[in-house]
Amino acid sequence: MNFVLDTGVGFWNPLVFVAGLLLVLLVSYLIWSRGEKGCQRGVQGEAFFSGDPAPRDGVRAQDLYWGFMETFKVYYEWMVNLHTGVINDYVAWFIALMAVLLILVAL
């Protein structure tokens, strides 16, 4: 029975990894259990939202990674414009793929 995955360059043994993971979890549990007992839930206060009143229904999915999307705005506008959703364009892309492959491989 071979438990070590040999990838030609490196190797990977999940069982050792899991054992290490359990060890780390145990250590962190020990540290956590020595913590302050008197800390109560619900004393953290309101979420700080740049000084504005926080939106009532929390952060929505489309607000996540706002900075990333803002940075790559040009790329995303380009991409969304390419994904038109018109079936004619889908077929045109397929024909283009075929034509490029024909030029690359057959000629």
Binding site: V80, H83, T84, G85, V86, I87, N88
Partner: peptide, 9 residues
């Protein structure tokens, strides 16, 4: 009309 579509992006 195929341009009158709802699924895109």
């Amino acid at each position: 009309d195929s341009r009158d579509r709802r699924l895109m992006g």
